[in-house]
Structure formats: structure tokens, C-alpha cells
Computed example of a mutant assay.
Amino acid sequence: MISEIQVHAIARQMLEMHGAAAIAQAAQKAVSCEHNGDAEEAREWRHIAEAMKMMRGPHQS
């Protein structure tokens, strides 16, 4: 299991590299991990996706 600091570091890097698409990529990685039977890694990718959503902030309207 990765630490909270690592989760936020990965989330920040992915957002910088891929923008808003990074959240979808993390979700896809989570699904892929589940299909491969790696539930722990899937949970980590979902945690990373949630961290990215928090970093992105509220939607602008």
C-alpha cells in the first residue's frame, strides 16, 4: 500500500502531464487492475483519482 504522500505526488504528476484526462486514466487503470485480479492496486488507483478530483477543485459554472 502506498502512503498518502505518494498518492498526492502521483496525482499531482498525472494532472500536470495529462490534465483533466488524468482522472479518467486512473479510473481505467483501476478497472484494468480489477480485471487482472489485483484489488489492492485497483483501490490505490481509485484513491489517486479521488485525490486528483480534490486537487482540481469545484466545477466552474
Rank of each mutant, 00 (worst) to 15 (best):
M52V: 10
A21T: 10
H59V: 15
I10L: 10
K29H: 12
M55P: 04
A20L: 11
Q13S: 15
Q25E: 08
S61W: 12
M55R: 07
R56P: 02
Q13Y: 14
H8S: 07
E16M: 09
G19K: 11
Q60T: 14
A42R: 02
I23G: 04
I5F: 06
A24E: 11
Q6N: 07
P58F: 05
R46V: 09
I5A: 15
M17L: 15
N36R: 15
A11C: 03
M55Q: 12
I2R: 13
H8P: 00
R43Q: 11
E4V: 07
V31P: 00
E41I: 10
N36G: 15
M14D: 11
K53A: 07
V7N: 02
A11V: 00
Q25S: 12
M14A: 15
K53W: 00
E50N: 12
M1H: 12
Q6H: 01
E16Y: 07
H8M: 13
H18S: 13
H47L: 14
A42C: 03
I10F: 01
A27P: 00
A49H: 02
P58S: 13
Q28S: 15
A42N: 04
A24L: 08
H18D: 05
A49Q: 01
Q6V: 09
V31M: 07
H47F: 06
A26I: 06
Q6E: 14
A20F: 04
G37F: 04
V31G: 11
S32Q: 14
E44K: 11
